[in-house]
Structures are given as structure tokens and as C-alpha cells.
């Protein structure tokens, strides 16, 4: 890979990320402890410390299209052990949010993106999660109708899957939150 640095673009991207992150990219000295402890590093295309460096270099496209930002499970092992106290897990949230706002569709991790969207839609319309509806819509959208299906009968038998969901009665207040911030 080769990167030609455009200083203005680089600064813009860095400043956007840092403002949302409330932290400085320059704090990271690339020791790699985040990547060493990341439980999902094995699935990622770039290690977390590479994502930090690439962001600092202004490599917007590869960063926002990376698998890494979506595969991050927000377990915070990285941030907890970071010797510099850098918001490693935080930067993944920020990059996901930027990618979402830009409407970037991940080529490989579309399902994760869909799940987050369906989840928030469910909150938007009910105020709470109605699990059966959430799973159903998610399956429809990802066309993965039969994945995990074998779990369903037993879950229903055990009483884990309810057939109707509770709703927040002041649903307008939820709608307003989404209007203001979505």
C-alpha cells in the first residue's frame, strides 16, 4: 500500500476524529498493546494500532471501509490497558459513526451495520426492544432467514421469546430524541 499525504485532507480528518473523540491521536506511540489484547484481532483487516496510525495519516478511505471498525466488540480491553490512556475503543465508535453518517456500506460487514440500524429502529418505534421483531426484521434485511432458526423452538418453549413486546407509553418523547439526534 502506498499513501500520498494531502496535508489539508489529513488535518481535516484528524480534527474531525479528535473533536468527536475528545482525545489526541498524537498521544498514541504505537506500542501495540491494544492489538495484543484485542479478542477479535484475528478477524480484522487492520490491527487497532494500525487504525490509529492510519487515521493520523489521514487515510480516510481505507479506515472507514475497514472491517476492523465494525468487528470491534467494544470490550474496552484496549482502552483499559493502554499505557497512554488513549481512547482506543472510543476511536472505533467515532469511526463507525463517521462511516454511518457518510453512508458508507461495508462490503464485508454489512450485517453488523444492518443490525445496529434495525436495533435503533426498534427502539425508535417501541422505546424498548421487542426481541422477536428485532430478530425477524434483521433476518429479513440480511436475507439470513434460517440462521439460528434451530434455536427458536426451544427458546419459545423455555419462555425466552415473547410473542408481544412492551412499549414506552410516552412514545413521543422517544420520537423527539430520535428527531433531535438521528
Amino acid at each position: 500500500m502506498k499513501t500520498i499525504i494531502n496535508e489539508q485532507d489529513r488535518r481535516n480528518f484528524v480534527s474531525q476524529v479528535e473533536t468527536m473523540l475528545h482525545d489526541k491521536l498524537a498521544k498514541c506511540y504505537q506500542c501495540g498493546k491494544c492489538s495484543a489484547g484485542c479478542p477479535v484481532n484475528f478477524e480484522m483487516d487492520y490491527t487497532p494500532n494500525q487504525i490509529i496510525k492510519m487515521t493520523e495519516l489521514g487515510m480516510q478511505d481505507p479506515v472507514l471501509n475497514s472491517k476492523t471498525i465494525w468487528l470491534c466488540v467494544s470490550c474496552n480491553t484496549c482502552s483499559t490497558r493502554c499505557p497512554k490512556g488513549f481512547e482506543v475503543a472510543g476511536i472505533m465508535d467515532v469511526l463507525r459513526e463517521i462511516a454511518t453518517r457518510k453512508g458508507i456500506e461495508s462490503k464485508t460487514e454489512k450485517e453488523i451495520q444492518v443490525f445496529h440500524k434495525v436495533f435503533l429502529d426498534n427502539v425508535k418505534s417501541n422505546g424498548r426492544i421487542f426481541e422477536l421483531e428485532l430478530v425477524g426484521k434483521y433476518r429479513l434485511k440480511t436475507k439470513r432467514l434460517f440462521r439460528d432458526m434451530f434455536l427458536a423452538p426451544k427458546m419459545i418453549e423455555k419462555g425466552k421469546l415473547r410473542m408481544s413486546g412492551d412499549k414506552v407509553s410516552a412514545i413521543n418523547s422517544i420520537a423527539k430524541i430520535f428527531r433531535d439526534f438521528e
Binding site: 468527536m20 467494544s74 465508535d93 467515532v94 463507525r96 459513526e97 454511518t100 451495520q113 443490525f115 445496529h116 440500524k117 436495533f119 435503533l120 427502539v123 417501541n126 422505546g127 424498548r128 426492544i129 414506552v168 407509553s169 410516552a170 422517544i174 430524541i177 430520535f178 433531535d180 439526534f181 438521528e182
Partner: peptide, 18 residues
């Protein structure tokens, strides 16, 4: 009374304000 979902991991993943 009338509590709502905390947004779980979906909200912090793609929308900090939410």
C-alpha cells in the same frame, strides 16, 4: 416509570448523542 431501552451497543456504535 415508563423506562426506555438504553440503546445498548448499537447506539454508541453509530450515534454518540443517542
Amino acid at each position: 416509570p415508563d423506562w426506555n431501552c438504553c440503546g445498548a451497543s448499537a447506539a454508541h456504535s453509530i450515534n454518540h448523542n443517542l
